[in-house]
Each structure stands twice: as structure tokens, then as C-alpha cells.
Design a protein around this nucleic acid. Structure first.
Lengths: 209, 209, 209, 209
DNA sequence: TATGAATGAGGCTTCATTCAT
DNA sequence: CATGAATGAAGCCTCATTCAT
């Protein structure tokens, strides 16, 4: 599946105006929340005028949904394939999964989207459902597959994989939220490397047979 | 003629108005976020009119800060004392700590406040700092004490307690956020008991010497 | 006409609450204007609660009109009689008139009322008419009588008494306005004595035959 | 198809909007006072909607200050120069000064501004100081120069010029106030010509050596 | 396409007025 | 009589949206 010349992911488009607007909108929505973000600020941050925004999006809500969808869709197909192809130990696989997930989140808008979904789930429940089905549920399922692979191969002790998956996913999600929230408040940020190492360390020791 | 002859325009007493307003405000701020919450709705939910709110609070921002502070301050001093008095194993102590923390959060507004702080940290950075210092930092410190107690007594293996504390706190915080976000979106809620059991199970096995 | 024991000048009454309220209202209305004066401040300045005000006055507008009328009515009957009884020169009479008027204004609320009438004439035209008929017109008429007496007795040269009366009244009114406006703004106040002396000096030299 | 085919929602150009708004605001502020003037009425009188006002002014207070400054600044430099160039008698000069001042006030917003300053000095003390320094103090100084010129040339008798200047300025100011206040109340307006003639007549006779 | 002036619904806040105590 | 908690209409201001250019 080679990169297509035109991927019609946003309403209308021309050159990269939409992307710039989506990037600006993501930043401000994440910083301030949906209601507190003014479209004029989004437009200014994208270097266009207020009216231009309406050439590409139907309005504020449409822009918001586009931001969420645009930042979620590219993420879906990455980590999963790798799990099935993996040859090594399940512990290694789990660690790789965690680290890959964090890497993917860091190089995309997923960290911000996750914060947005926590903040705005009440105002956009169907978006929150979409996020949970497409991102969380698939991440969960991937973790479950690894956990079951580990148990099946005798590497992991018997655990409640369904419950444990969320326990393992939670620290990664929380790291995303902290990563978004702490620096703007002048709160000392998390030491990401040490945090992830501790998480993987805890999982390896906590799960091993 | 027992009570009201001619439907009084208002009823309750001055003393409990602030609490009623704070409770209503907490609910709506958590559901909708700060900017999307209308003071008229808060007042209506508390059973009073718009103007009454201003008899007790200086305005929207003041109400918000009061909500946060009122729901954070009562929580601070509970779990910590228990740690020092504990006689049993550190694993038991850690489990008790996690469960107590969740219990306390469930019977107070802390779950909502935590969601609020994720959502509004960018708009109220000094409140976010207050929250982190009073809630997160103290929870972290308590966890650290337990981890170091366990290591000192040979119950836990040597770990990076500073990094691990956040890994352990994160799932509890994330549970609070899910607990607030999922039900209003008609997403299947977390099985809290199984989740906490898995968390404690992972910690016990993951930390033991 | 001896002083009566009860002069029913205000709506209802009891002891001296009404006077205290009227005094407080006069002060604040003059300082801030009608619209910018809050009844709660009036009540507080009078040492009573907001509700009490409504026991004595029908509302804000009623209070305002009462303030104006209460401070105008006592003033009406003083200066006029003196003119007819006067035996000396018309120049002396005019000077006495000016000084008496200023004295009367200083020891009553008339200075404030005059400022109020300038400020609020547009919002209370019928009050402004009342003020002009009862205060200005009568002052004017008195001045005219003095001017005509002076001309009749050959002390003053022939002038347009109708036009000149306002020219003579204006500096006294303006002095009242300055006296009310300048000190609160930290602007150097008028030297009242020198001002009145100059006015009388100008009149005496300017009118003499 | 000469111009508007389908009734445009707005018409005029950006450049003259501020002046139109300032003119409308001056009128209403003078008529009703600061607090009683609604911005929506100002906007309507200027032919625009509420929100448009905020494109040009920061808010009500900013609009008010702009109104005052815009109507004061153009007035400052006119009459003064003429005094120094004058060749004729000081009596003529004084009369010319008075008449020029009145003419200037009549053809500008100064009459209204003067009323506003009397009414709102308590609420805008620093504006009142600005007005007194820029308008009153300069008028005063010009009058003083004429009086001293007259005394120096032996045309005027010796007087207290500092006190007399305010006595001479007061009738002109008071005429402005009457001119603003009387007509809206259906009170017979001042006969301006006769009034000014009487004032000049009084000054000439009252000052001459 | 792109602009930005203009609009007006909607929310925060004030305060005159009411009325149970 | 007096109080002050409660009300709600009204005004200031913001900002999503429209549209002539």
C-alpha cells in the first residue's frame, strides 16, 4: 500500500492549509480545552484569517472532530502486526510493545488527543466512544494477545489478562497525560526513561511464571 | 397548618447553601469542563437562582477554585499516618494503601477533581500545582516510604523507588479518570475490583525480593 | 410661621431614619450620580439594611426625588423677603444677596443638588423643571428685582436686567459645582472668598451708573 | 445594476466607524450620563450592532475616555495664539476671547464634554484632572494674560486677576451647561446673544480703569 | 481562495426589589 | 420595624459564524 498522492482525510483541502490548521487546532485544544479555544487563535496560529478556516471546516465542532480523527487514524495499524511476527520472549515483546506505543504517541498527536478525550468525553461522547473503540480497545487487545501468548508459552504465570491489560495500559496513558499537563504548569516533568524502565521492570517481574 | 401555607420563594438556610452549590458545581464542572459549565445550570442544580450564587462566591473562577480546594483539603491526612503505624508486611501495606486511596477517592469528590485537573491544568496552572503538591506529591511520598520500607526489610527487591512510585500511582489515577469518563459515554466501565486486584497482584509479584 | 413639631416632608417616617437616609443618599448621589449609586451603599452609609430603605421610600427613583425635594424646599423662602426690607444701596443689597445665597447653599445640600441637576436633568426632566422653577427662577427674579431697584434709584446704569441676571447668577452656581467637583478629584479648590469678592467687585463696578 | 442588489448586512467603511461611534457616544453620554448609557443604544445610534463597537474600543470605559479626549484635544490651540497677536484694546480682546470660546464650544463637542465632566468627575477623577489641566487651566491662563495686559496698559483698573479669571470663565461654562441641560427639559433656553452681550458689557464696565 | 468587518446569540455579573423571619 | 437571603431583569462583553469584497 504505497503512499497515495491525495489522501482525502479532511473535509476539503488545498495544499497543506488543512494540516496547518489541524496542527494549530490540536495544540490549542489540548492546551485550553474545546470551549476555551477561540477559532481566531487557531487561525492566527496557522497563519491564516478567521474566515479561511471555514473554507476547510464546517465550524468549530467539525474542526474538533477532524483534529481527533486525523490524529487517531494513522496510529491504528502499526503495533499490532508486529506482535504476531515476533519470535522472541513474551517479556521482550511486551516491553517492545510499551516502548513502541510510547514512541508512536510521542511522534504523533496521540498524547494530546488522549488528554482531550479525558477532558471532553462528556461533551463529545460519540468521539470518546470512537477513541475507545479504535485506540484503547485495540491497544488493550494487543496487550491481551501478548499476555495470553506469554501464558500459553509458560513464560507468564496465570493471571486475569482482561483486568491486567488495563493495569498495564494505564501507566502509559497516564504518562501521556502527565507529559501534556505538567510542563505548562511548571511542574517537574516525569523522567520518561526511568518511568518506562520501571514499568517494564515491574511487568517482567510481576508476570513471570 | 404544618408548614408552608403560600409557597415560599426560597426555603433552605444560609448555612448549607455553599455546600449545595459546591456539590452542584463539582458535578457540572467534571461533566462539562470549566468553560462549558454555565453558572445558571449550577445554580439550578443547587435549587437556587443565578444571583444567589454570587452571595457565596465571587464569580465563576472563585467558585471553581473553591470546588477544587474544598474537595482536596479534607483528603490529605488519612492514609499517611497509617503507613508508619503498620506492623505487617510491606506488600500488605502497599495493597492497603492502594485500596484505601481508592476508597477515599470514591467517597469524596477526588475522582472528579482529578479529571478536572487533567482537563483544566492549562487554564489554571497554579491550581494544578496546588493539586500536584497536595495530592500527587503526598501520595507519591507515601508510596515511596512503603517501597523503601519493603526494601529495607528485605521484602522487596532493589528498585528505583522514585520512578516506581509513579508507575504504581498511575493506574490508580487512571482508574479515577476512567471511572469519571466512561459511564457518561456509555462505554463499559472498568471492573474496579478485578482491576485493583490485578494491580496489587502485579505489584506484589513484581516487587518481591 | 413657627417651626412645626412634625413636618411631613417625606413619605413615611419614624424618628430620624428618613433624614439619615436622605443625607446618605444625597452624598452618594452627588458623588457618583444617580445610576452609579447603589441602594445598598446608601443604606450602609445610613447605618441600616437594604430592606429598611424600602420602609421609608418607594424605591430608588422615589428616594432620589425625595432627596432633591427635601434639600430644595427649605431654601425657598429666605432671601426674597430681605430684598424688600432693605434700606441701603442696591450695590450693598446685591452683594448681600450673593453672599447670603452662597451661605445658604453651603449650609444646606443645595450645592450638591445643583450638581445633581446638571448631571441628571436629562434623566429627570420634570425634576429639573421643578428645580428651575423653584430655585433658579426665584433666584433670578430676586436678582432682577435688585437690578431694577438699582436702576430705578439711579444707582445702576441701564442694562438688560433679564439677561444680566443670569450672568450674575452663573458664577455663583458655577462656584457650587466647582466646590462639589474639584476636591474629590484632587484639583486645587477655588479660593471662595477671593472669588466672591471679585464677583461682587465686578458687579459693583460693572453696574454702577 | 448600480449598487446593492441584495441588501448588504452592513455598508460603511472601516475608517469612519470610530468617528460615528464617538459621535453617537458623545450624544448619549451627555444626555444620560455614563452609567445610564447602554452600549447597545450607542451602537444603534451609530447604525451598527453591539459587537461592532468592540472592534474599535476596548469597552465602555475606553469608549468614554476616547469620547472625552477626542473632543478635547482639537480645541486646545486656537484661542491662545490670537491673544498675543492682538493689537487693539484689551476690552475688545477680552470680548473676542469670550465670543471665540463660545463659538469654538458650539461647533465642537466641548459643551457636552463640560457637562459630562461636571456629572462624572467623581467617577473619573483622572479624566476630570485632564480636563481641568487642558481646558480650564489654559482658558484661565489666557484670561489672566488679557487681564494683566489690560492692567499693564492702563486700560483696566487693578484687580485680583487670579480670582477674577474664574469669575469671567464661570458664566461661559455655565452657559455651556445650560445650553446642554435646558432644551431637553423643555425649559426656556438662554438667549445666548443677549447673555454674552451682558457678560461682555459687565466685564468692560466692571474692569475699565 | 482569502480576508476581516459585522453580526447577534449567549454567558457572566450587578443590583433594585421582594418577602419570610 | 428591621433584616438580609433570594430573585431575575438587564447590561457588558465574547466569540462562532457569515458574507461582501
Amino acid at each position: 500500500m504505497s503512499a497515495t498522492a491525495k489522501e482525502p482525510r479532511w473535509e476539503r483541502r488545498k495544499q497543506d492549509r488543512p494540516q496547518e490548521l489541524l496542527a494549530a487546532a490540536l495544540q490549542l485544544f489540548v492546551e485550553r480545552g474545546y470551549a476555551a479555544t477561540r477559532l481566531e487563535d487557531v487561525a492566527a496560529l496557522a497563519g491564516v484569517s478567521k474566515g479561511t478556516l471555514y473554507l476547510y471546516f464546517d465550524g468549530k465542532e467539525s474542526l474538533f472532530k477532524s483534529v481527533v480523527r486525523a490524529n487517531m487514524l494513522p496510529l491504528l495499524d502499526e503495533a499490532e502486526a508486529r506482535v504476531d511476527r515476533h519470535e522472541g520472549s513474551s517479556a521482550e515483546l511486551l516491553c517492545e510493545l510499551i516502548r513502541n506505543w510510547w514512541e508512536a504517541a510521542s511522534h504523533s498527536g496521540l498524547k494530546g488527543i488522549s488528554k482531550l478525550m479525558v477532558a471532553e468525553s462528556g461533551n463529545f461522547p460519540e468521539l470518546a466512544r470512537f477513541y475507545h473503540e479504535e485506540i484503547i480497545a485495540r491497544s488493550d487487545a494487543t496487550v491481551v494477545r501478548v499476555l495470553e501468548r506469554g501464558m500459553a508459552r509458560g513464560e507468564f504465570r496465570r493471571i486475569d489478562a482482561e483486568a491486567m491489560k488495563k493495569v498495564i495500559v494505564a501507566p502509559v496513558l497516564m504518562l501521556m497525560l502527565w507529559d501534556q499537563s505538567l510542563p505548562p504548569c511548571d511542574i517537574a516533568p516525569i523522567d520518561t526513561d526511568a518511568y518506562l524502565k520501571s514499568l517494564m521492570d515491574l511487568c517482567i517481574h510481576g508476570l513471570k511464571a
